[in-house]
């Protein structure tokens, strides 16, 4: 076991901070994230308000700490939806009969024709904006990528010796899926999920920023950026710090995913 490097420990430290913020925000910032104080509006970072205040005098640091829970939760839920759909489509494709594989592969191809956020935007146009629909939208937009990866992984595991051995031993379809194929797909999938959460956080907060997800004054990072948009030229701290929280959490999960990936590969 080699000693973990800075590249491996730094993301864990950053993520630990955000996770503690999400679980017990009052431990780090005991204030009320929604408490307004009109006399203290638009204050620059100072000793009293380390990251400044917004248009209603709410403390930005408190809001960022309290915003960790919704922001991270939306990212994680969206990833869960994307991975769940991806797993179903990928397993159906990789294990099902040929016609089912063709159908699901084609379906995924069609979803791939809507790049990036487009599928999410189409979904929101139909289902209406809001936190729930934007989470589902991000999950939907990431699903085709997961489906393709799961399918290729399932195909390679399926052709391996131990699955053939299980088949020869007369084990049924479910047993082969649950005992042999899924456990061997999960390691790769776990890495992908870690890499994907960062992206989901960024996309979900983009939607909030565009006014299609969580709306202000809720303490969510994208929504905070949205309300800071109007004042960006004069009060930079209103957009800079919530954005920094998004960048840090996304970069940290990506780096964590990377080091997990190299561990899985080398083992």
């Amino acid at each position: 076991m080699k000693r973990p490097s800075v590249v491996e420990t730094a993301p864990v430290v950053v993520l630990a901070f955000f996770v503690v913020s999400a679980v017990a925000p009052n431990l780090i910032a005991p204030g009320d994230p929604l408490a307004i104080d009109p006399l203290a509006s638009f204050q620059a970072p100072s000793a009293g308000h380390p990251l400044g205040t917004d248009e209603s005098g709410r403390d930005i640091l408190t809001r960022i700490v309290h915003g960790a829970a919704p922001s991270l939760l939306i990212g994680v839920l969206a990833t869960a939806i994307g991975v769940g759909l991806g797993l179903v489509l990928g397993i159906v494709g990789g294990l099902g009969p040929r016609w089912l594989d063709t159908t699901s592969t084609r379906f995924v191809e069609v979803l791939f024709a809507f790049p990036g956020l487009l599928l999410a935007l189409l979904f929101i146009a139909i289902a209406g904006p809001g936190p729930v629909t934007s989470t589902i939208a991000v999950g939907l937009a990431t699903a085709p990528g997961y489906a393709r990866l799961v399918r290729s992984q399932v195909l390679s595991v399926r052709r391996s010796g131990y699955v053939e051995a299980a088949l020869v031993l007369g084990h049924g379809w479910w047993r082969r899926l649950l005992r042999h194929i899924l456990p061997n797909v999960t390691a790769t999938l776990f890495v992908l999920v870690t890499l994907g959460v960062g992206q989901s956080i960024v996309w979900a907060s983009s939607l909030s920023y565009l006014g299609l997800g969580v709306s202000p004054p809720a303490a969510e990072w994208g929504a905070m950026l949205n309300s800071g948009r109007t004042y960006v030229a004069s009060f930079w701290w209103m957009t800079f710090f919530p954005g920094l929280a998004i960048v840090l959490s996304a970069a940290a999960t990506t780096l964590l995913g990377r080091s997990l990936q190299s561990r899985v590969r080398s083992s």
């Binding site: 960024v202 983009s206 920023y209 957009t239 954005g243 920094l244």
Partner: peptide, 13 residues
């Protein structure tokens, strides 16, 4: 990891 909206506002700043 840089979201477009944050990069854009930071560049404007």
């Amino acid at each position: 990891a840089l979201p477009h909206f944050w990069l854009a506002t930071s560049l404007v700043l």
